[in-house]
């Protein structure tokens, strides 16, 4: 039986788009933003708030805010309505991220599926961003579940 969300067939969209890379961007990690982020979240561990600490690094989920502006691949179908809301994030911290680092990120469509909940029928579009440092080492992976109303 075909799954559908409006006029878009979810199974077809999944088959066509999952695994597609669609964005390539660079981000420079700003020391002041790292500290402000950690302090705003009540962080008390010196590694994240003291730039003089020998192991000073970004908060583990600091990369979750990195967005280049492109939300979907070119020609991606209009699935669901509205801009979408943030349904959740999974962060894998592979290596510490240091102040001043330049990270290159590649974004991929990781999954597309629909389900029903208290808010009605929703489509989940999962995007995966992989961040590498200047040496090519993978430092962070972020899976972002964008929820759109079907």
């Amino acid at each position: 039986m075909a799954e559908s969300s409006g006029s878009v067939d979810i199974a077809e969209a999944r088959a066509e788009w999952v695994g597609v890379e669609f964005d390539w961007a660079e981000f420079t990690i700003d020391k002041d933003a790292m500290i402000q982020w950690a302090l705003a979240c009540g962080e008390t561990d010196e590694r994240f708030i003291d730039p003089l600490h020998s192991d000073f690094q970004a908060h583990p989920s600091f990369t979750t805010h990195c967005m280049s502006g492109r939300l979907f691949p070119k020609n991606f179908p209009q699935i669901g309505g509205g801009f979408g809301i943030d349904g959740g994030k999974t962060v894998t911290a592979h290596l510490p991220i240091r102040a001043g680092a330049t990270l290159s990120a590649i974004t991929t469509i990781a999954d597309i599926f629909d389900k029903t909940g208290r808010s009605g029928t929703m489509v989940f579009i999962v995007q995966r961003m992989e961040f590498k440092d200047e040496t090519g080492a993978l430092v962070s992976t972020v899976d972002w579940k964008m929820i759109k109303k079907a």
């Binding site: 982020w37 950690a38 705003a40 979240c41 009540g42 962080e43 008390t44 561990d45 994240f48 908060h59 583990p60 989920s61 979750t64 805010h65 943030d86 349904g87 959740g88 994030k89 999974t90 962060v91 894998t92 911290a93 579940k145």
Partner: peptide
């Protein structure tokens, strides 16, 4: 409260519970 802030609030709680630990993965559903 932004979802990504709530995730970092939890991280700060973990760091207070186990100072010096390394959070390898955090997975939150908003």
């Amino acid at each position: 409260v932004p979802g990504i802030m709530s995730q970092s609030l939890l991280l700060a709680m973990i760091h207070r519970w186990a100072p010096g630990c390394t959070v390898r993965k955090i997975d939150t559903v908003f």
